[in-house]
Design a protein around this nucleic acid. Structure first.
Length: 203
DNA sequence: TAATGGATGTTCT
DNA sequence: GAACATCCATTAT
């Protein structure tokens, strides 16, 4: 089966639905002739207006403006003085939204990911938003990158049909009743803490 | 295994 | 000046 790139129409929908359906897709990072990739096993939805956890809650600013534009672009931001986080924008133009990619299961180029993470002996390669971006060499230079067209960062559709568990988002203290964190059931590459209902089974 | 605190840059009030 | 969609090492159980 030849790989199919995830296109703009997929992203331009209701954000929690996009996040849910991104589980199982392949995230591809190309660096010259090298290819790093991994299956998305964990993602979170952030919306505008009514979502108090979102960067877009409170209106448009220079930082979050990419969330208001065309779907399918990268929103990369820097947190806690150390880490970059990768999001993909969603919704129609004018409606802010993004999906935070929190963890992947490494598929191609894991030796290079290990080097990017600081060499042998590293325990957690790609389970966590900051760890994942470090493994894939993703930083703010990729902010605004168009994943529908880019040669260096894009997604491919996966198998689909795997079990997905939903839970409250990590590191947010508001809107806990929203279960907008989605994890592949049983995957050992999901970050801690595991959501309620998660079972360590497959892999 | 769980809880703590330190490191550190950017953004917005 | 405070808050922050985190990670890691160290400490306590």
């Amino acid at each position: 089966m030849t790989p199919v790139r995830v296109g703009r129409a997929f992203f331009a929908r209701y954000t929690p639905l996009v996040a849910r359906e991104l589980i199982g897709c392949l995230l591809v990072r190309r660096l010259g002739d090298r290819r790093l990739s991994g299956i998305i096993v964990e993602a979170e939805a952030y919306r505008g207006g009514g979502d108090p956890a979102s960067h877009a809650y409170g209106g448009k600013t220079p930082r979050n403006s990419v969330m208001y534009g065309e779907a399918g672009h990268a929103y990369v931001y820097f947190v806690y003085g150390f880490h970059n986080c990768l999001n993909i924008t969603t919704e129609a133009v004018g409606t802010p939204g993004a999906v935070l990619i929190r963890a992947i299961e490494p598929k191609e180029g894991s030796p290079e990911m290990l080097r990017n993470r600081g060499g042998p002996g590293v325990k957690h390669l790609t389970d966590g938003p900051g760890r994942m971006t470090q493994a894939l060499s993703i930083d703010r230079e990729l902010n605004w990158e168009d994943l529908a067209k880019s040669a260096s960062l894009y997604l491919e559709f996966g198998e689909g049909n795997m079990d997905v568990v939903a839970g409250p988002r990590v590191g947010v203290n508001s809107a806990k009743e929203r279960r907008w964190r989605f994890c592949m059931q049983g995957s050992r590459f999901v970050s801690d803490p595991k959501p309620p209902g998660f079972r360590r089974t497959i892999n």
